[in-house]
Design a protein around this nucleic acid. Structure first.
Length: 431
RNA sequence: GUGGUCGUAGUUCAAUGGUAGAGCCCCAGAUUGUGAUUCUGGUUGUUGCGGGUUCGAGUCCCGUCGAUCACCCCA
């Protein structure tokens, strides 16, 4: 090939069949768990009016937007998140639904950041929200879904932990320390960076509020500072049998200004990676985004595909579970038809067509190949069965590829026969 | 945006400054109706790109692009 060779843009990925199957594993697990817990799926556009994001956050975030002018002169942005779109759609349509809303979306988002481990410029996110319910029962319900999701990926106690905090506890603390209300966001932002800031700078910043790093750390370390909502959640999740997965961690504040209450993050137990998921309560965002047209309390979280995948691959039992799923779900077909005698090709075509129409995934070789090659092709396709059609037609041989055994049957009832065999696992063999 | 490390075949990697190689993968055959193993043969490179030093650069120097890791940030 002459000229430059093309590759995916920095931070973007090609999904080969294997990569795509892994992605589908994540998506299907997310979707299954959400539905199981009573959430419904919605979807919003991938491209939005840039103002939607500037209004919500503003500031430096605009530097990380995939932003451009479309051919109609509109200032548009590839979505960096879905919460803003959710706020819009909810503000507009919320009267059509009984409360609370339990909604989820699986979608691709874009952020112009430097790619590194656990982060690309494009990623998929599982977004789950409960809207219209102000009490901590909603937060507990949401956190339980986050935990159930982890369990569905095969993680067990000891693999991960949900660290829960409450901004209300911090706001109370700020009040008792005499911090003026309009400076609380600034204060929370300092708390958020407590362990990342240089000691000298940290001390200086806290001094503005007549506080010391030690005083703040003491507050974090004291379980007595847990809020009422946190205690409620702890009890609620305990009753669900999920108490072991949650712990109080007041050091979690999260960077975003719009969180108003409970906030939480999921970490791998070794805390060797960035957060697997994070979220919290944002009771004023819907109102802000809709200029007061709709005012709904809300709580939600998001889980990205990068970190959860890394964690699955580094956790043997979770990785094993994914491999099993991939073997069952990523095969090119279930039945590979092998043509042992070239003159049987027409019968084979009819057979393949019938199988397919009956809902059975079937494939066949396109050229004339030797038997050995065809069987090899069958094996590589990942199919469970190779159906051999040869001179004995209408007698067919069904080879169970994994066990290298076989059985015979008649072409006239091939559909029923094979459907039946597909329904049952390859148990003890008759062969 | 800042910094560290690294760029050689599809891939994993070799090549004291002196003629660019191997394994794997892929394709075909040995095997005329059975998947393995083995054997044989075959395809592929402006050594990321551009300069510089040198008689001579994959190798040394500078730039650039890309990958990766960390910082920043993390909606």
């Amino acid at each position: 090939m002459a000229g430059p060779t093309f590759q995916a843009l920095p931070g973007f990925r090609d999904f080969t069949p294997r990569e795509c199957a892994v992605r589908n594993y994540l998506f299907e697990t997310w979707r299954r768990v959400a539905r199981r817990c009573g959430y419904v799926e919605y979807e919003t556009p991938i491209l939005e009016d840039t103002n939607l994001y500037l209004k919500k956050s503003g500031g430096e975030l605009s530097a990380q937007l995939f932003r451009f002018e479309d051919q109609g002169g509109r200032d548009v942005t590839l979505r960096p998140e879905v919460t803003a779109s959710l706020a819009r759609i909810v503000a507009r349509h919320q009267r059509d639904f009984p409360k609370p809303l339990k909604w989820f979306e699986i979608g691709q988002c874009f952020r112009y950041e430097k790619p590194q481990k656990g982060r690309g410029r494009e990623f998929h996110q599982f977004n789950v929200d409960i809207l219209g319910e102000p009490g901590p029962a909603a937060d507990a319900e949401l956190i339980s879904l986050a935990i159930e999701t982890m369990l569905s990926f095969g993680f067990v106690a000891g693999d991960f932990v949900v660290r829960v905090s409450d901004r209300k506890a911090w706001i109370n603390y700020a009040n008792t320390q005499g911090i003026p209300a309009d400076r609380i966001p600034e204060f929370l932002s300092i708390v958020d960076k407590l362990e990342r800031e240089k000691p000298a700078a940290l001390e200086e910043k806290l001094a503005q509020f007549s506080l010391t790093p030690q005083a703040v750390r003491d507050f974090i370390a004291d379980p007595a500072n847990a809020s009422f909502d946190y205690l409620f959640i702890e009890e609620d999740l305990g009753a669900r049998g999920l108490g072991d997965f949650v712990e109080l961690d007041l050091s979690i504040v999260r960077g975003l200004a719009y969180y108003t209450g409970i906030v939480f993050e999921i970490f791998d137990s070794g805390k060797s990676m960035r957060a697997v998921a994070g979220g919290g309560r944002y009771d004023t965002l819907i109102s802000t985004m809709s200029d007061g047209a709709a005012d709904m309390p809300a709580t939600g979280f998001a889980m990205g595909d990068y970190v959860i995948r890394n964690l699955i691959e580094e956790t043997p039992h979770a990785a094993m579970q994914m491999e099993v799923w991939l073997q069952r779900n990523a095969a090119a077909c279930d039945v590979f038809v092998v043509i042992a005698a070239a003159e049987q090709r027409e019968n084979a075509l009819f057979l393949v067509s019938s199988l397919r129409r009956a809902g059975i995934s079937a494939d066949l070789p396109l050229g004339q190949q030797k038997l050995g090659k065809q069987l090899q092709q069958a094996e590589r396709s990942g199919a469970r069965f190779a159906l051999v059609i040869g001179a004995e037609y209408p007698l067919l041989t069904l080879k169970i590829l994994a066990s290298r055994t076989e059985e015979t049957g008649d072409a006239s009832n091939a559909i029923d026969w094979i459907s039946d065999r597909l329904r049952h696992p390859d148990g003890p063999l008759l062969a």
